Measured scan of single mutants.
Amino acid sequence: MQRVNMIMAESPGLITICLLGYLLSAECTVFLDHENANKILNRPKRYNSGKLEEFVQGNLERECMEEKCSFEEAREVFENTERTTEFWKQYVDGDQCESNPCLNGGSCKDDINSYECWCPFGFEGKNCELDVTCNIKNGRCEQFCKNSADNKVVCSCTEGYRLAENQKSCEPAVPFPCGRVSVSQTSKLTRAETVFPDVDYVNSTEAETILDNITQSTQSFNDFTRVVGGEDAKPGQFPWQVVLNGKVDAFCGGSIVNEKWIVTAAHCVETGVKITVVAGEHNIEETEHTEQKRNVIRIIPHHNYNAAINKYNHDIALLELDEPLVLNSYVTPICIADKEYTNIFLKFGSGYVSGWGRVFHKGRSALVLQYLRVPLVDRATCLRSTKFTIYNNMFCAGFHEGGRDSCQGDSGGPHVTEVEGTSFLTGIISWGEECAMKGKYGIYTKVSRYVNWIKEKTKLT
């Protein structure tokens, strides 16, 4: 034993070699072989497995989906700052455009905790909710729209109204504003409101030439003092309507412009014939205590009207009353817009006519005020429907199939267009061939041609 100890002390290297040989010859039971080890760690190889990531292109799944990435790591994937920024906006807080917040056709661009709407022409605001041009839906104005110097929408209202708090709607500024039905039992019968379409306001006024200088022999019209197929109006439903009495009662109609003036057809009036105007009328054979009678003290036909040349060209006249009318729910003026808007309103496509005229061709006159909704007829169809001249200051309205029309005794009465609950004068009943005849239409004086003249002559002093 002493000898062994001496050998170990003198030859430590020998001992180490012996131990190493023993270990190498022993069977290893701690580690699995290569094949079995792979069965336990069965993990798919990654895209760049075996390579240094710093030297390969980034992978979106590896960089940002398996674990949260930084902007720089995302930049490695896209290799483009702009594309990385677009991805980053949604990656950080989701897609803010998912709810489609942009209105009126706006395009949404996502941002971090926010979004941006790219608005089409005519709109602005956070969600493109603000109209900035009158060309689109009248700028959301209830009545009139004008573009300011910086191309912003400025709404306005006709006389007797003021802008509401929203700067879009119009509200009454006087007790009985024009064009409004205020009798409670008839307010439910107000005709369907007309909503502004998209309009090209630059070209809204037709490029028409008034044929002022045409000389033409007097034409022989049949029954051209021209509501057939209409309905009984309720008291106060058309408070701007008046009836004219002269040699015979209810020979023509008219509309209240203001307390002192009536507008009617020029062919209705004769110099030297006494005319009485009755406002607030409903049943011409009954006294309903809503009527107001006034005498006409002055007749002003349009300066281009000449019955000797043509009885229905420039067929418009103004009547001055001896005493002002007292405005109330049964006696209310009709609204008159400017030339541009009167023309736009007419193009809405349908209007209402009213009167006490004959209820059928050569038949009896109506006792109760009649009204009828009539569609506008395109000019080409209008011209083809008659052998008589249709001037540019006239328009056609009615039904091709016949059966409904204005008729004798309705002449001078109103053709009105309702705009968001307020009625505007767009025409004056003038003439036609018979009444409600198939293929024939009622012919009306186009008020847009005469609004400046009306307003100039009827100013209240």
Rank of each mutant, 00 (worst) to 15 (best):
H34W: 11
S148D: 09
P333A: 06
V273P: 11
T271G: 11
V416D: 00
E193R: 07
Y312I: 08
I443D: 01
F221V: 08
E61P: 02
S255Q: 03
Q185Y: 12
V227Q: 10
G357V: 15
L60Y: 04
S354I: 14
V368F: 05
A307K: 10
Y115F: 12
H361V: 12
F31L: 14
T458S: 08
M437V: 14
Q219W: 09
V278L: 08
D322C: 03
V77S: 05
T342Y: 02
K440M: 05
I112E: 14
S148M: 08
I15H: 06
S350M: 09
N38F: 10
T445L: 10
E401T: 12
D405V: 06
R404T: 15
V228N: 07
K293P: 05
N59E: 01
G355W: 15
H302N: 05
V368G: 10
E142M: 12
T276A: 07
K137F: 09
Q237C: 04
F224D: 11
I300L: 10
A317M: 04
G125Y: 03
H302Q: 04
L372W: 15
Q370R: 13
A380E: 14
C141D: 00
E288Y: 05
E129R: 04
I284A: 08
N310S: 15
Q185H: 14
F395E: 00
T133Q: 13
N328Q: 02
K188W: 12
C382K: 03
R83S: 13
Q90Y: 10
G229I: 13
V273E: 15
L211C: 10
Q185D: 12
I15M: 12
K347G: 12
K126W: 09
I214F: 09
S25D: 09
F71V: 05
L32G: 08
E66Y: 04
N127L: 11
C69F: 01
S156K: 09
K188R: 10
C134A: 03
P333W: 01
Y115H: 06
I443A: 05
C335A: 00
S329A: 10
S169I: 05
G357K: 15
D93R: 13
C145L: 02
C382R: 03
E159R: 07
N36A: 12
P177L: 00
Q57Y: 00
G442Y: 05
P101F: 05
K234H: 13
K152W: 07
Y201V: 11
G402W: 15
Y91G: 05
S365V: 11
C382T: 02
D338A: 06
T84W: 01
F345S: 01
T417P: 00
G253F: 07
P301N: 07
G179Y: 01
N127C: 04
D33W: 11
L23V: 14
C335Q: 01
V153H: 09
R3C: 14
E340W: 10
E420Y: 11
E193K: 10
I40Q: 08
I309Q: 12
L130N: 12
Q185P: 09
Q216V: 13
R43H: 02
T342Q: 03
E54I: 00
L244S: 00
K440A: 08
C157V: 00
T426M: 01
I316Q: 00
G125W: 02
S354C: 08
K459L: 10
T215K: 07
G230I: 15
D111T: 06
T417Y: 02
V154H: 08
V242T: 04
M6H: 09
C155H: 00
E340L: 10
T417S: 08
E129Q: 12
F31K: 11
V277A: 06
V326C: 07
T29F: 09
L460N: 09
E323C: 05
P414R: 02
E67N: 02
G246C: 04
S204R: 13
Q185E: 14
G402F: 15
N147L: 13
I17E: 02
I136R: 13
E27A: 13
V416T: 13
V228M: 06
E27S: 12
N59L: 03
Y115L: 03
Q216P: 12
V296L: 03
K260W: 07
Y161V: 01
T215G: 07
T271S: 11
K39T: 09
G403K: 13
L376M: 11
S107N: 13
N283S: 08
P333I: 00
I275Y: 07
T458A: 06
A207W: 11
E340P: 07
R384K: 15
E67I: 00
H282Y: 13
K234L: 10
F121K: 13
E27N: 07
D322H: 05
C141L: 00
L327W: 15
D212E: 15
V447G: 01
K438L: 11
T290C: 06
C252S: 01
I7V: 14
E171N: 08
I136G: 07
T81M: 11
L383K: 12
G236E: 04
H303D: 11
L41C: 03
R294E: 01
A266H: 02
P235C: 03
C178I: 01
E320W: 01
S329R: 10
K387C: 04
N113Y: 07
P197T: 13
E53V: 00
Y47I: 04
E288M: 07
N452E: 09
V92H: 09
E79V: 07
N127I: 09
A37I: 03
Y352I: 14
Y305L: 02
A192I: 08
D315W: 01
C134L: 03
Y305T: 02
I334V: 13
D232I: 15
N38S: 14
E320S: 02
I210M: 09
V278I: 06
S385E: 08
C134Q: 03
Q241R: 06
T417F: 02
N313S: 10
L460E: 11
L321V: 06
T215W: 05
K152I: 08
G106A: 08
N80S: 14
N100M: 08
T290S: 10
S107P: 04
E281H: 12
K51H: 14
D249Y: 05
G253I: 14
C128A: 03
S350L: 12
V353G: 02
L367R: 14
K188M: 14
N295S: 11
V416S: 07
G94M: 13
C141Q: 00
L325D: 00
Y441H: 05
S148I: 08
Y450H: 03
K293Q: 11
Q408W: 14
A380H: 08
G402R: 11
R140E: 11
I344Y: 15
S430D: 02
K339W: 07
G253Y: 06
C117S: 02
G106K: 03
V248H: 13
F399E: 12
Q143L: 02
E286G: 09
G412H: 05
N151Y: 12
Y341I: 06
E286W: 08
N452S: 14
E286L: 13
Y312G: 04
G160A: 03
E208Q: 07
M65C: 05
G442V: 14
S411G: 12
E72V: 06
A26K: 02
Q143M: 11
T158N: 06
V326K: 10
F251V: 08
D315I: 00
I15R: 11
N36V: 12
V359A: 15
D378T: 06
D378N: 10
L23R: 02
S204C: 06
F388D: 06
S350I: 08
I297C: 05
